[in-house]
Amino acid sequence: MPHILFGRSKELEIEITEYLDLVNQGALTFKRDLKRYIKKDFELFEEALIDIKEIENNADEHQKDIKYKLYKYMLIPDSRADVLNIIEEIDTITDLAKEVIYEISIEKPVIPAQLESDFLELVENSAEAVDMLVKAVRSFFEEIAQVNDYVNKVHFFEHQADKNEERLKRRIFSEECQEVEIAYKLQLRYFIEEIAALSDQAEMVSEEVSVAAVKRRI
């Protein structure tokens, strides 16, 4: 369909697609940066630190624009509140990702070698939950019948991330890590919770997407 025919709708559609791309990029960058850090590739980690910040800033701009255009052009009156809510809630995920990366760069927690693979798995599952959430949101706009499939996948990865979180905490506070000082243990626990928080937030937003999708079905 030609661009000119849809006018404002097309403009907003592009804006939303770009915004969701940014959220996706945020999750991928989060995963890439943490992998570098966990594998002790600190130089590369610090070099690319700015990436996540740029993504987050860009996403914020898009979010503001979407809000403004939805109201200015008075589009989708019966789904507008749901869309705005989803867009706002999903933005906290990118914020959280940036926060975790920057705090790690500042505090430089020491990750014991024996915990590396568990950490990687936690990061993987948390980022995957966000990826599935973005797919659920895209389906909410484009193909409503698919929303539930993706929401179920978000639940799955969040559940996996929860398990990783618990296992890591148990291992840190077990005899296996007795050489690690308690202050470092608490610091590690904090970062584990922060990384897992990404998947928790993804799950929360996915619930809202699911409800909004039910409302959209006639």
């Binding site: 369909m1 849809f6 907003l12 989708i76 484009e142 006639i218």
Partner: peptide, 16 residues
């Protein structure tokens, strides 16, 4: 209902 619940129409196109 049958058509819209299975159609691949973007929410904003549908609005249009």
């Amino acid at each position: 209902k049958k058509w819209l619940n299975n159609a691949k129409i973007h929410l904003l196109h549908l609005d249009f």
